[in-house]
């Protein structure tokens, strides 16, 4: 009964991926009918003489750390507040979820509009210095703009995962703690957090793998610029394969990205699962 699922996955993901792995040992521009086998030369180049890939790696790792931390902390905070029995909580949950429903291509387009035309108007209105800064043009600031848009778009999804987790926390345990006189902050860290660790594991797992693969928002917001300031590994792969016409080399980079994601997420899952067991 698993055969149809397995066939679909093999056919549309894994076989194409294995084909890319094969291409990673070739010199091929993605077009010529002749493909030349060159062994591990692509991998050697990637490790030794490609500053572009190095900077994309650094950007992606920094981006991942900040985006995963910000997303999860804010989403958890929102979840805790919107899990309480307050008026209008369903409407509020929906409000924070809405950006997650919109395609990333459109999100990028909308934010370009906000950063350019919008910020001009805000600046004229408020005379605040923040709006005079070049959020997409300054190669330091642009990092935070990309993180901001990514976090803005994805918070809703992780908030829902955390709300789901919070709903599994037995009310009685919380109430017992209230009677014992434990404060709300203590209550959260001593009782709630350990009980929702499974949610944390899942949310961190999703956000990690999404951040390491990040592409769409950057593609439409900055196209990796200015210069290479916001070029992620996935975008670097795209540019290598299609702009530089180095399909074989781009494939080698994507194999490395796959291994990176695999290593990071497997490490995260085992580490978190161990904590869950202890808790």
């Amino acid at each position: 009964m698993t055969a149809p699922a397995l066939v679909a996955i093999l056919l549309f993901v894994e076989i194409p991926f294995l084909m890319s792995v094969l291409y990673s040992f070739t010199k091929w521009n993605g077009l010529d009918k002749a493909v030349k086998f060159i062994g591990i030369a692509n991998y050697a180049e990637l490790m030794t003489t490609d500053p572009g890939f190095g900077s994309a790696m650094i950007f992606t790792l920094l981006f991942t750390v900040l985006a995963v931390a910000a997303t999860n902390v804010i989403a958890l905070l929102l979840a805790v507040i919107l899990d309480a029995n307050i008026r209008g909580k369903n409407v509020l949950r929906a409000a924070f979820y809405i950006p997650n429903i919109i395609s990333l291509i459109i999100i990028g387009y909308v934010w370009r509009f906000i950063f350019s035309r919008g910020f001009d108007s805000f600046g004229a209105l408020t005379h605040l210095g923040v709006f005079q800064l070049s959020w997409l043009g300054d190669f330091h600031l642009v990092f935070f703009s990309v993180v901001l848009v990514t976090v803005w778009q994805s918070i809703g999804f992780y908030m829902v995962i955390y709300i789901a987790g919070l709903q599994t926390v037995p009310r009685e345990q919380i109430e017992a703690a209230v009677i014992d006189g434990t404060g709300p902050v203590n209550r959260f860290f001593r009782i709630t957090l350990p009980l929702i660790l499974p949610s944390v594991t899942v949310a961190v797992f999703y956000s990690l793998s999404n951040a390491l693969k990040t592409f769409d928002v950057i593609f439409s917001l900055t196209f990796g610029g200015p210069g290479t300031a916001t070029t992620s590994i996935a975008l670097d792969i795209y540019k290598t394969a299609f702009s530089d016409s180095r399909f074989g080399y781009g494939s080698a980079k994507s194999v490395v990205l796959f291994l990176l994601i695999l290593a990071v997420t497997v490490f995260q899952l085992t580490a978190f699962k161990r904590r869950e067991v202890q808790a």
Partner: peptide
């Protein structure tokens, strides 16, 4: 084998 694709970036296999 079935869940491994969650780690595979789409751009790495789209042409194939």
């Amino acid at each position: 084998v079935c869940v491994a694709p969650m780690m595979i970036p789409f751009h790495s296999f789209m042409i194939s």
